[in-house]
């Protein structure tokens, strides 16, 4: 079963994170890196990425048949997705166990629609 783990944090968390002293920032990145490495080695990670901040986001929205381009994320939310991982595991409990090991913030776990039998 495939799930997407979305790594979520508030923009304040994000700001605070970016203002961390160099060594602490490096340590945090290392913990996240280790998480990815461990689960990749075990064959649980299919894909994923760390995203740049919402200030770099551009939203394209179809309106009356026309694609409108606007600055900013698709929704002004207190919490933003900072990255994601696509994982392949047996069931929700395994996905939750991975999410529990993520070193910071919140993780939203969403099952992926299986189109293999369509």
């Amino acid at each position: 079963m495939r799930y997407v783990l979305m790594f979520v944090g508030s923009s304040e968390d994000q700001d605070a994170f970016e203002k961390l002293p160099k060594e602490q920032l490096a340590a945090a990145y290392e913990r996240a890196g280790r998480w990815f490495e461990e689960h990749s080695k075990a064959g649980r990670i299919v894909g994923g990425a760390e995203l740049q901040g919402p200030n770099t986001a551009t939203t394209v929205r179809l309106k009356n048949g026309k694609a409108m381009v606007t600055d900013g994320p698709y929704i002004e939310a207190k919490e933003i997705v900072g990255g994601f991982a696509i994982v392949e595991v047996k069931d929700l409990d395994e996905a939750l166990a991975m999410a529990k090991g993520w070193p910071a913030g919140a993780v939203e776990v969403r099952p992926v629609v299986d189109h293999s039998n369509d």
């Binding site: 079963m1 069931d91 929700l92 409990d93 166990a97 099952p111």
Partner: peptide
Amino acid sequence: VDANIPYRVPAGTE
């Protein structure tokens, strides 16, 4: 069903 919540008794620390 959709999120595949397993039908099991958790073990260990869980």
